[in-house]
């Protein structure tokens, strides 16, 4: 069991290593001649205007929140899928109920306009 996961640690370590090596390459070999112009945020050649980080439409947060909720449900669906054969009809019905509830929530958000992007 546990050994199955160790290789994933190994590859993760390697990936992290490579990621930093690549960054390091750029730092080592790239020239470094900053000027104020260069350092200015890119705005299609215009003089930068206003702060770079601005408040974003609340839609983004809404989507994030909805995602959290619905994504967690997917976790249940996935685990259920593994053992569906053992659960049989009742398992199917149970999930059906679960999904109906989920869909009600989805429809509610939909109808309330939470999914509109304007």
């Amino acid at each position: 069991m546990f050994e199955d996961y160790l290789p994933l640690l190994v590859i993760l370590a390697l990936a992290v290593l490579i990621g930093f090596i690549v960054v390091l390459l750029g730092v080592l070999f790239g020239p470094r001649r900053p000027t104020p112009r260069k350092m200015a945020p890119y705005e299609s050649g215009m003089v930068p205007y206003g702060p770079g980080r601005r408040r974003m439409s609340v839609r983004y947060y809404l989507i994030a929140v909805l995602f959290i909720l619905f994504d967690i449900e997917v976790v249940f669906v996935v685990s259920w899928a593994v053992v569906l054969r053992k659960l049989g009809t009742l398992g199917l019905l149970g999930m059906l109920v679960f999904l109906v509830v989920l869909e009600v929530a989805h429809l509610y958000a939909w109808k309330k306009g939470a999914l509109e992007w304007d």
Binding site: R55, V58, Y61, L62, A64, V65, L66, I68, L69, D71, I72, V75, F76, S79
Partner: peptide, 24 residues
């Protein structure tokens, strides 16, 4: 743990929504 994660997610949803609303 599964259930805890789910409830935690539900709380995150409510909590973040609240914070966004208050921040705005």
């Amino acid at each position: 743990v599964f259930f805890v994660m789910t409830t935690a997610a539900a709380e995150v949803a409510v909590g973040l929504a609240l914070m966004v609303a208050i921040f705005r």
